Structures are given as C-alpha cells and as structure tokens.
Computed example of a mutant assay.
Amino acid sequence: MKKPVYLDYAATTPVDPSVANEMIKYLTPDGVFGNPASRSHALGWQAEAAVEAARKQVASLIHADPREIVWTSGATEADNLAIKGAVAGRENAHIVTSKIEHKAVLDTCKWLEHQGVDVTWLDPEPDGSISLQQVLDALRDNTVLVSLMLVNNELGTVTDVAPIGSVLRERGILFHVDAAQAAGKMPVDVTSMQVDLLALSGHKVYGPKGVGALYVRRSPDVRIEAQIHGGGHERGMRSGTLPTHQIVGMGRAFAMAQSGLEQEVQVLESLREKFLAGLEGLDGVSLNGRESGRVPGIVNLSFDGVEAESLMLGLRDLAVSSGSACASASIEPSYVLRGIGLSEEQANRALRFSFGRFSTEEEVAFASSQIVEVVGRLRSVR
C-alpha cells in the first residue's frame, strides 16, 4: 500500500530520527536503564542526571527555570493537573475559559462544574482568538483561574496572552495556558507572557508520545494540589516512576526546536504559501481562522458544496483531518468551527491541513493538485 502524504502534523509529529537514537541509549541492558529515583547505585544516578538535563532543555525553550518543569504523561495530564490542582480546596471558586479550548481543558472544566465550581465560557472572536476585554468582562471577585490556549489546534490562531497575563498577575488570579501547539512553532516566553501554569507535549514537537510537562511558576510560588499520589515525585506535584527514555527524547526534541526555530518557521511559511497558491484557481474556498497572527503550519479550509467526509475519502493519497484528533470519534461538526460562528453546513465542509519538519514542496504541490481535482469531481456530480 502506498504511503499517503502526511499533512496532519497538528495531530502528532513523527519522532525525529536523532531523538529516537538518543532514546535508545536509555532502554537497553547496555544503556542507562535505571530508575531515576534509585539513589543507591550509578545507573540510578545516571538516569537522574539525564532527566535533569532534559528538564533544562525543556525549560530553556520556554525561558523558564528547570525547577519549574514538572514531568507528566502529556499535555492532557498537564492541563488536568494545572486546572484541578489550582482549584482544589478553594471554596466558591470561579474559572474563566473559552468554548474552543482543547478537550483536555473543556472536559476538565465541565467535570469541575459538576463538582460545584462556577465556569464562565467565553465565545471566541470570529478568527478564533480571545481578547483581553472578554477576559476582563468575565472576571469576578471569586475568580481563581483563567485557562486559555496559546495556539488553537484546529485554526492555528494565536491568542495574545501577554496583556491578559499582565492583568491577571496584578489581580492575583492564576493564568493557565495550553501551549501544546505553540512550542517549537513560535517563541514562547513564560516570563514576558506572565503565565503561571503552562502545558507542553512531547509528541507535537518531534518527540515521543506519552510524555509532557507542566510549567509551574516558582517566584512567587504557585501552589497546586497533586492529582496523582504515590511517592511525592516532582516536588510533590506528580508521583510516578519517570520514563527516562521518553523524557530524554522530549528534552532532545525541545533542544532541536529551540536551535532551529527561526529556520523552521520560515520553511513552514513557504510551504503554506505554496500550498495555498496551488488552490488559487479553485473557487469557493474559505480560510477559517485568520491570515495573520497564526502559526504557519496549520491551514483550515472550507470547500463550498463539498462535504469534508467525502473529500477525505477522495483524497486517499493524503493524510489529513477534519478537526482535532481528540474529537475524531465524534460525527458532530467541529465544535471549534461552530464556536467561531460557522454554520453546521460550513463546519461540515472544512478540513485541516498541517505541515511539519519533514514536509516537502513536492508533497504540498501534490496535495494542492489532488484537492483541486477531487473537489472539482465531487462538485460535478452534485
């Protein structure tokens, strides 16, 4: 079977070969396979040293102190830990978030609502961003947390979080940001953004699946309550034996992302322009999101008169998606697209195309030509 052209980097990225090679060193009997928590022998010390080196690499990408990095199983767990941990023990707590956050945030906040926490759900701007004024209007005396994503995973839209962070810092309200789609795709600086809690994922940045991290600000200390207990690892915030090989892989991936960020953004911008240029002769194509103020690797398009499901079936040589992988089991139209004001019909005609490090000009040109051909064919048989 012919391997399809992969244009679903927003769902996951392949592990960079150099990352995989580094991970192998921490798996096999002739490598450093010890438990990082074992303090009685050299293999444990070496594993711990590798974990701490990776902690520095992850911290460096977001301009944090390594002591502010808490290892998790992924961004989903990091989001859960941040939100539930910040609210735990607070009576009469109020949270502000938006209707188009990742499911890891939406479902966590919905669960908290059932526990008696009051949640304000913000409607996004038509381009998928959240404004400072929207947040200001939603704040109350009992607001303890605001949770917003930096880059929307379906649209690629960037929310300007720094002004929001500044206001929240002045008012003593915690600010949680999901940066899973931002790391490695744009500069992320937790200090200038004035973020208190920030979720990261390894597999969105050419690292392995099953590992992520939560940034927890130390100065002054942000206190969150652990959600997993059993040993007091990670400064008491997240217990469990650390997967050295996955952590090393995430660290290596983040170090590569930092050193090659500027060049990678330029390449992705060029690929995006080439992809869209190949569609210029096709009528009835709408961009969902916005042209500027977004990361270059995500393009969400609606095609008049063509159902996304039919289009995906026709594009059998391309690996693309109709929305977030976290909601792919649902037959409902994208809640993100509905959230920015698209009708159900418009949302059902949208596909997300996302490019990455291993995408080529030939691949995106082929993708454009296939889309033009298949859309034309589907429209002709209506």
Rank of each mutant, 00 (worst) to 15 (best):
His229Phe: 11
Val320Met: 05
Ser328Thr: 15
Asp16Trp: 09
Met193Leu: 05
Leu279Cys: 03
Ala329Cys: 14
Ser334Trp: 01
Leu337Ile: 04
Asn288Arg: 15
Phe355Ile: 12
Arg382Ile: 02
Ala47Gly: 13
Leu242Pro: 00
Val51Arg: 08
Pro126Gln: 02
Leu287Tyr: 04
Val51Gly: 04
Ile331Glu: 13
Ala78Cys: 09
Gly236Leu: 09
Leu214Ser: 06
His102Glu: 12
Leu282Gly: 03
Val372Gln: 13
Phe366Val: 09
Val151Thr: 08
Asp160Gly: 02
Glu77Thr: 11
Leu174Ser: 14
Val285Glu: 08
Val306Ser: 12
Arg90Leu: 12
Phe353Gly: 00
Ile247Met: 12
Leu106Gly: 02
Glu361Tyr: 09
His203Ile: 14
Asn152Ile: 03
Val267Glu: 07
Ser131Asn: 07
Gln134Tyr: 13
His102Gly: 09
Asp304Cys: 07
Ala253Asn: 02
Ser368Pro: 11
Val211Ile: 15
Arg140Trp: 00
Val265Cys: 06
Ser321Tyr: 03
Glu291Ser: 15
Ser343Gly: 13
Ile95Leu: 14
Pro66His: 11
Arg294Lys: 10
Val135Gln: 08
Val375Ser: 08
Leu106Trp: 08
Phe366His: 15
Glu234Cys: 03
Asp127Gly: 13
Leu378Arg: 04
Gly74Asn: 13
Leu214Tyr: 05
Ile69Leu: 11
Glu309Ile: 15
Leu279Lys: 07
Glu234Gly: 03
Ile69Val: 15
Ala75Met: 08
Asp221Glu: 13
Ile224Ser: 01
Ala199Arg: 03
Gly210Cys: 05
Leu287Val: 10
Leu311Lys: 01
Gly31Asn: 15
Gly314Met: 01
Glu113Tyr: 04
Glu307Phe: 00
Leu174His: 14
Asp123Trp: 08
Gly44Gln: 11
Arg272Met: 02
Trp111Asp: 14
Ser302Tyr: 07
Met237Pro: 02
Cys326Val: 10
Pro220Trp: 09
Phe358Met: 14
Ala75Pro: 13
Val267Gln: 12
